[in-house]
Design a protein around this nucleic acid. Sequence first.
DNA 1: AGGATATATATGTTGACGGTTATATAACGG
DNA 2: CCGTTATATAACCGTCAACATATATATCCT
Lengths: 103, 103
Amino acid sequence: MDLVFETLAEPNRRRILDLLREGERPAGDFVSALDISQPGVSRHLRILREADLVSVRQDGQRRLYRLNGARLARIDAWLAPYRRFWTDKLDALEDHLDRETPQ
Amino acid sequence: MDLVFETLAEPNRRRILDLLREGERPAGDFVSALDISQPGVSRHLRILREADLVSVRQDGQRRLYRLNGARLARIDAWLAPYRRFWTDKLDALEDHLDRETPQ
DNA sequence: AGGATATATATGTTGACGGTTATATAACGG
DNA sequence: CCGTTATATAACCGTCAACATATATATCCT
């Protein structure tokens, strides 16, 4: 399944990924960070797991979540052919600036 | 509003953007391409407009849609701090290969 | 074993979303 | 003007996603 975009559409899930950039974290961290109920967080974590955006490992009674960046490369790949649509704009701006202040 | 991710979650809308990479297109093009009704397409176009992902200009009785790449830069910006999470992997792979075939 | 803690699952409600059909608006051609 | 074409809006409907509460599971500790 390729539900990366759909998974990333949810703000709470993006927030979870943001937190995971700092490293492995137990599920409870997200509960205190996210202002939704514990089952709600658990549900989002399950969706992130199913989308293979995160992985888990057991650590005692906690479950430590880790970011799986590889999956985000798919977004990057989708974005690639669009990149010229804003880098071109930057190039044009640079050209403009070059002309405004020609050394 | 910053609903870029939410807007991109819908496959038909992504398809529309894909088609727009080739250049300006009238709304009718998407109707024949998308296998949903004309009003359905029109709705998606409105959402893309509201997300500022596309712009329109009148051309006789048609309306020509154009891609607005600048908005996608927001996705790119969000993605940026994650990039190391898969480029690191590639680096590691390269290191590994270097060791496997040293010279 | 039993209590406490951490996390997941079950269940039910609700609002938003995407689809359709019907209709309105607007521009063109005769 | 009138009919046609192109597109948007209105109204309605079914589905699904996200939330909460309640409960189950699993692990730790004593």
